[in-house]
Amino acid sequence: MSRRASKDANHDEIVEHFELLGCSVAELHNAGLPGWPDTVVGCIGVNHLVEIKNPATAYGRRGLNPNQQHFSRDWRGEKVWAVCSTDEATALVQNWRSNAANKRGSE
């Protein structure tokens, strides 16, 4: 039996922010798979797994829980990213876009 995951208090704000930055977001916090990240964020043709953490709670400040750590360790796709704020989401999107531009420029 899977447990219905709850969203962090900052979840909706961060999802909305990713969308304002031009990303698409699929929410997965209710997928029922242990350790599966909260969202898939589509940005410039790439899907990124993103875990949202809330630094206002002790649970959020502890970082990835054991299930999330195992998933992140065993996942053979792109790394799992974690964000705690809209500022971190902005920095992450800027990083993804910069890396994509650098790859295009080196081809």
Rank of each mutant, 00 (worst) to 15 (best):
F18K: 00
L92F: 04
A82H: 05
D38H: 13
N47G: 12
V40W: 02
A5V: 11
N95Y: 15
T90Q: 05
K7A: 14
V15Y: 05
G42R: 01
W36Y: 09
T90P: 01
Q94F: 11
H17L: 10
N30I: 15
R73K: 15
H29V: 12
S72T: 15
P55A: 06
V50D: 00
G42M: 05
K79R: 13
N30V: 12
R76L: 12
A100K: 07
E13I: 06
D74E: 13
S6G: 14
E13M: 08
S85A: 03
L20S: 13
D87T: 00
A56I: 09
N54T: 07
G22M: 12
V15D: 01
V93C: 07
C23G: 02
N47E: 10
W96K: 06
T39I: 03
A26L: 12
K103L: 13
R4G: 06
S106T: 06
D8T: 08
A100Q: 08
V46Q: 08
A89E: 00
M1V: 12
T90A: 06
E51I: 09
A91Y: 02
G45N: 03
G42W: 03
N30M: 15
C43P: 03
E51C: 14
H70W: 13
Q68A: 15
E27R: 13
W96D: 08
N102W: 09
L64F: 11
L21C: 03
N10D: 11
N54G: 06
G42D: 03
S106V: 05
A100P: 03
E51D: 07
I14W: 01
A9Y: 08
V40Q: 00
S72K: 10
A31D: 10
W75V: 07
K7Y: 07
L28K: 02
W36M: 10
E13H: 04
Q94V: 11
P66C: 12
L64H: 05
K103Q: 12
P37F: 01
G105P: 01
I44R: 08
A31H: 08
E16Y: 04
Q69V: 15
H29I: 15
Q94T: 15
Q94S: 13
I52M: 07
F71G: 04
W96A: 08
L21P: 02
R97I: 12
G22E: 04
A56T: 14
P66V: 10
P66H: 10
D8H: 04
A9L: 15
L20W: 05
G60T: 01
H11F: 14
H48Y: 07
S2H: 13
S2R: 10
S98P: 09
R104N: 14
T86H: 01
Q69M: 14
S24W: 09
G35V: 14
K53S: 05
V80R: 01
G22N: 04
N95M: 14
A56K: 15
L33T: 14
R97N: 09
E19W: 06
Q69L: 15
T86P: 00
S2W: 11
I44L: 10
S2P: 14
L21E: 00
